[in-house]
Computed example of a mutant assay.
Amino acid sequence: MLPMLGAAGITLDRTAGQLGPRTLASAICERIRAEIIAADLMPGQKLNISLLAKRFSVSLAAVREALSRLVSDGLVEALDQKGFRVRAVSPRDLLDLTRTRIEIEGLALRHSIEQGGPAWEAEVRAAHERLLALPRLDPIGEPRCSDAWAREHRLFHEALVGACDSSWLLAFRTILHEQSERYRRLSTPLAPSERDVEGEHRRIVEAVLARDVEATLRAIADHFQRTTDIILAATPVLLGDALAA
């Protein structure tokens, strides 16, 4: 039997024994996760289990399990007797998230700088070059972050902390990155044209490769804070009541 291609592009291989319920839920979970992070599913949006099951051609139970996993990751909220919705956003949450992310990212960068060798340095340079080679904005349609650039941007920041050997620290960092990515995607149409994102990345790379921990921490804090400031300044234009709570 050939794999079934769900409406959202998930390959659902229904061959006996090749795709159990947990594997199916994982595939759906990752697709919904990607759509939440990319802001294709907007903050506060209700997630209708029946519609999602129909869209993915799967059972209600598989969708419910996928959404429950996303609740654990903080991307989805469970509503008492009312199903699920994409986790809401707010200025207070954004400020708390940014402060925490600066602290955790800083710790991971410090470990990486202290422990990284020539191979790590080479990967940082390579990841930076790959990012520079891509346009940041999608050239077609509404102004939004290019999916290809977003993928390389994630890999670039992962390369920076690639020599950190603390699995717990990196796990917390990933959670914070996903939450921050939602806000960053929402901020893209608002970012002033004079913002020099490439320059921000270059300063981070230079400080990291110079093994200058304090300069690295300042550069990463500035990089994260600029996105936060842009969102907070333009909140009424972007989401109105969604971010005004």
Score class of each variant (00 low, 15 high):
residue 103 E to Q: 08
residue 127 A to T: 08
residue 243 L to V: 06
residue 186 L to Y: 00
residue 220 I to T: 14
residue 210 A to Q: 14
residue 199 G to Y: 07
residue 206 E to C: 04
residue 141 G to T: 06
residue 55 R to Y: 05
residue 37 I to N: 03
residue 47 L to D: 08
residue 225 Q to P: 00
residue 122 A to Q: 15
residue 98 T to N: 14
residue 92 R to F: 06
residue 24 L to Y: 00
residue 50 S to A: 13
residue 69 R to H: 05
residue 125 R to K: 13
residue 107 L to N: 02
residue 79 L to K: 08
residue 242 A to Y: 01
residue 45 Q to T: 07
residue 173 R to Q: 14
residue 168 W to T: 09
residue 19 L to R: 07
residue 213 V to Q: 09
residue 244 A to M: 11
residue 167 S to L: 08
residue 242 A to T: 13
residue 28 I to R: 01
residue 99 R to P: 01
residue 243 L to S: 02
residue 195 R to A: 03
residue 151 R to F: 10
residue 11 T to W: 11
residue 239 L to G: 09
residue 187 S to E: 14
residue 211 R to G: 01
residue 9 G to D: 06
residue 1 M to T: 14
residue 62 A to L: 06
residue 231 I to P: 00
residue 161 V to S: 04
residue 129 E to F: 05
residue 140 I to Q: 06
residue 9 G to T: 14
residue 104 I to M: 02
residue 95 L to Q: 15
residue 122 A to Y: 00
residue 95 L to W: 05
residue 117 G to Q: 09
residue 187 S to T: 10
residue 91 P to M: 04
residue 193 S to R: 08
residue 201 H to N: 15
residue 212 D to V: 13
residue 17 G to T: 04
residue 159 A to H: 11
residue 201 H to M: 10
residue 228 T to V: 14
residue 95 L to I: 15
residue 113 I to M: 02
residue 205 V to W: 08
residue 209 L to H: 04
residue 26 S to K: 10
residue 203 R to D: 12
residue 137 L to F: 09
residue 118 P to H: 03
residue 65 E to S: 10
residue 241 D to I: 07
residue 45 Q to H: 08
residue 155 L to G: 02
residue 125 R to T: 12
residue 12 L to T: 09
residue 189 P to R: 06
residue 57 S to F: 01
residue 121 E to R: 03
residue 152 E to N: 10
residue 231 I to E: 06
residue 199 G to K: 10
residue 197 V to I: 15
residue 229 D to F: 06
residue 153 H to F: 13
residue 22 R to A: 10
residue 95 L to S: 09
residue 235 T to P: 00
residue 168 W to F: 14
residue 53 A to I: 12
residue 109 L to I: 06
residue 203 R to I: 04
residue 89 V to P: 01
residue 16 A to V: 11
residue 172 F to L: 15
residue 99 R to H: 12
residue 178 E to G: 03
residue 9 G to M: 04
residue 47 L to I: 06
residue 203 R to Y: 04
residue 178 E to I: 00
residue 73 D to G: 03
residue 23 T to P: 02
residue 228 T to F: 09
residue 88 A to D: 08
residue 225 Q to T: 15
residue 51 L to V: 06
residue 202 R to A: 11
residue 240 G to N: 12
residue 199 G to A: 05
residue 244 A to D: 05
residue 14 R to N: 13
residue 19 L to W: 05
residue 37 I to A: 09
residue 51 L to R: 14
residue 2 L to C: 03
residue 149 W to G: 00
residue 162 G to C: 09
residue 8 A to D: 09
residue 199 G to R: 11
residue 157 H to C: 04
residue 20 G to I: 03
